[in-house]
Deep mutational scan, measured.
Amino acid sequence: MIIKINGKYYKIKKIEKNPNGKYTITTENGKKYEFKNVKIFSEEELK
Protein backbone atom coordinates (compact mmCIF):
# COMPACT_ATOMS: atom_id res chain seq x y z
CA MET A 1 0.00 0.00 0.00
CA ILE A 2 1.09 3.54 -0.70
CA ILE A 3 0.35 6.81 1.09
CA LYS A 4 0.85 10.33 -0.20
CA ILE A 5 2.41 12.76 2.28
CA ASN A 6 3.13 16.35 1.25
CA GLY A 7 3.16 15.40 -2.42
CA LYS A 8 5.51 12.43 -1.99
CA TYR A 9 4.56 8.77 -2.03
CA TYR A 10 5.67 6.34 0.66
CA LYS A 11 5.23 2.59 1.05
CA ILE A 12 3.28 1.67 4.16
CA LYS A 13 4.63 -0.87 6.59
CA LYS A 14 1.95 -0.63 9.29
CA ILE A 15 -1.29 1.24 10.03
CA GLU A 16 -2.66 1.58 13.55
CA LYS A 17 -5.93 3.19 14.54
CA ASN A 18 -5.56 5.18 17.74
CA PRO A 19 -8.27 5.55 20.41
CA ASN A 20 -8.48 9.27 19.54
CA GLY A 21 -9.73 8.40 16.04
CA LYS A 22 -6.46 9.25 14.30
CA TYR A 23 -4.27 6.82 12.39
CA THR A 24 -0.58 6.24 12.99
CA ILE A 25 1.15 5.17 9.81
CA THR A 26 4.62 3.66 9.79
CA THR A 27 6.40 3.89 6.45
CA GLU A 28 8.95 1.39 5.15
CA ASN A 29 11.82 3.65 6.20
CA GLY A 30 10.54 3.58 9.80
CA LYS A 31 9.09 7.10 10.00
CA LYS A 32 5.78 7.50 11.81
CA TYR A 33 3.06 9.95 10.83
CA GLU A 34 -0.26 10.67 12.53
CA PHE A 35 -3.31 11.65 10.50
CA LYS A 36 -7.01 12.14 11.02
CA ASN A 37 -8.04 11.48 7.41
CA VAL A 38 -6.03 9.00 5.40
CA LYS A 39 -6.22 8.16 1.70
CA ILE A 40 -4.48 4.93 0.83
CA PHE A 41 -3.49 4.02 -2.73
CA SER A 42 -2.73 0.61 -4.12
CA GLU A 43 0.28 0.39 -6.40
CA GLU A 44 -2.09 -0.43 -9.26
CA GLU A 45 -3.92 2.90 -8.87
CA LEU A 46 -0.67 4.83 -9.27
CA LYS A 47 0.31 3.29 -12.59
Rank of each mutant, 00 (worst) to 15 (best):
K22D: 09
E45C: 15
L46F: 11
E34S: 11
E34Q: 12
Y10Q: 06
K22E: 10
E43G: 03
K13N: 08
T26F: 10
K47A: 13
L46W: 08
T27C: 13
K11S: 05
G7H: 05
K32W: 04
N37Y: 15
K22T: 15
Y23Q: 02
F35L: 13
I25V: 14
E43A: 03
T26P: 00
F35V: 15
Y9A: 04
T26Y: 11
I40P: 05
K36I: 11
Y33K: 02
T24K: 04
Y10K: 03
K47N: 13
Y10S: 02
I15R: 00
K4H: 08
F41H: 06
T24D: 04
I15M: 07
K13G: 05
E16Q: 09
K31D: 12
I2C: 15
P19N: 09
E45L: 09
K22P: 03
T27D: 06
M1I: 11
G30N: 05
T24E: 08
N29V: 03
K32H: 07
F41T: 08
E44C: 13
E44M: 07
I5L: 07
N29E: 14
M1C: 12
K39R: 13
E16H: 05
G21Y: 01
K32F: 06
K14W: 11
Y23D: 01
G7C: 09
K47I: 14
F35I: 15
K14T: 14
M1R: 07
K39P: 11
F35N: 02
M1P: 05
V38Q: 05
I25Q: 00
K39M: 13
N6M: 10
N18L: 13
I15V: 09
M1L: 14
I3G: 02
I3H: 01
G21I: 00
K17N: 04
T27E: 01
K4R: 13
I12L: 04
E43I: 04
T24V: 14
Y33W: 11
N6W: 12
K8Q: 11
L46Y: 06
E44I: 09
P19H: 09
G30Y: 01
K22M: 14
S42K: 07
F35E: 02
F41C: 15
N37Q: 10
K8L: 11
K39I: 12
E28S: 12
G7L: 03
T27K: 01
I40H: 06
K13D: 06
F41Q: 05
K17V: 11
N18I: 03
N29Y: 08
F41M: 10
K14E: 10
I5E: 01
E43N: 04
G30V: 00
E34N: 08
Y33N: 01
T27P: 00
G30P: 00
K17M: 13
K13P: 01
K22H: 13
K17R: 12
M1D: 04
I5D: 01
I15D: 00
E16C: 11
